[in-house]
Write a protein that binds this DNA or RNA. Structure first.
Lengths: 158, 158
DNA sequence: CCCGAGATGCGAACACCTCGCAGATAGAAC
DNA sequence: GTTCTATCTGCGAGGTGTTCGCATCTCGGG
């Protein structure tokens, strides 16, 4: 799989990198392009895999370091999905519903937890970091505890 | 630190183990007693540490396996708290608010997410597994992004 | 008290992630 | 375009949290 590394969307992110005085390197360009184009919710390893298909020299540890920089920049976020590796995605914060059975990731809008955030803040003084950990459970296909694992998929509900 | 291994509460759990045909061993007795008596939200390693204080022969992998059995039995649950090791606690399901700054774990009642569960079920057919992953954020003491790490603590709000 | 399924101790292996270091390179300054 | 150097990178080693295989041990039914 190959990803375009020079779309306006990619350039916009690279500009943000340049603004901070950091450098735009091949590895960073590839990470950004892959994150933008690829199916959502990749682990660092997925990401490295896609990239290495064309650029085998890009090392997993570089991918991790790049993701770390991009997170500091605020253009990337990661989400803990229970067991297993975190998943990374571009900027816009949203919630992740992760099926414990098949691993499917369902994106849900921010507004979903607005009431809860308000309540947590009022009752506990707790400031919820939205999106940083997924909401685990069962998707509709596995709610009844049916068996059988599908490879992870991803669904976005606007 | 030492824990009583023959209180009625401990025996009740051990009886549940016996009921299923599984065996009651020293290690299991110790894990149960420690989970009941110790400060809440222990990692497997914490648990092994406490136990090994008096019973150094109990191996960490046995603690993991015992916790796994107890979870299958439904008397123990674990919660993912973002980075780092999962924490284990006895039965009654509740939510965990975990401060990303200091690691403090705040227990919150089930009812807190009732509305959300209802909404998820209605809108997404998603069946939320309450308590399986913590809600990450900042506690009141760290909400403003102040620095300085405390050792983990634990607070329960009824 | 004997026996066998089941549990244990132990270390190795594993998955995910981070780090240290030596060498490469982006990009500012000329 | 050449030079310079802070920053990045590739690489392997290391760390942490968890699981596994296997030989041994033991609970508890007969």
């Amino acid at each position: 799989m190959t990803f375009l590394t020079d779309t306006p969307e990619v350039e916009a992110v690279l500009d943000r990198i340049r603004e901070t005085g950091a450098r735009v390197t091949t590895a960073r360009r590839l990470v950004v392009a892959t994150l933008i184009d690829a199916p959502a919710h990749l682990t660092a390893e997925d990401l490295a895999g896609f990239i290495q298909h064309r650029h085998p020299e890009v090392h997993l540890s570089t991918v991790y370091r790049t993701l770390e920089s991009l997170e500091k920049l605020g253009v990337v976020e990661h989400t803990h999905v229970g067991h297993g590796a975190s998943v990374y995605h571009m900027g816009v914060t949203h919630h992740h519903l992760v099926c414990e059975e098949c691993g499917v990731v369902i994106d849900a809008p921010m507004a979903l937890l607005d009431d809860l955030r308000e309540t947590l803040h009022r009752q506990y003084g707790f400031d919820l970091h939205v999106g940083h950990s997924a909401l685990l459970g069962r998707c509709d296909r596995h709610a009844a505890g049916r068996v059988g694992h599908d490879p992870h998929g991803s669904i976005t509900i606007p």
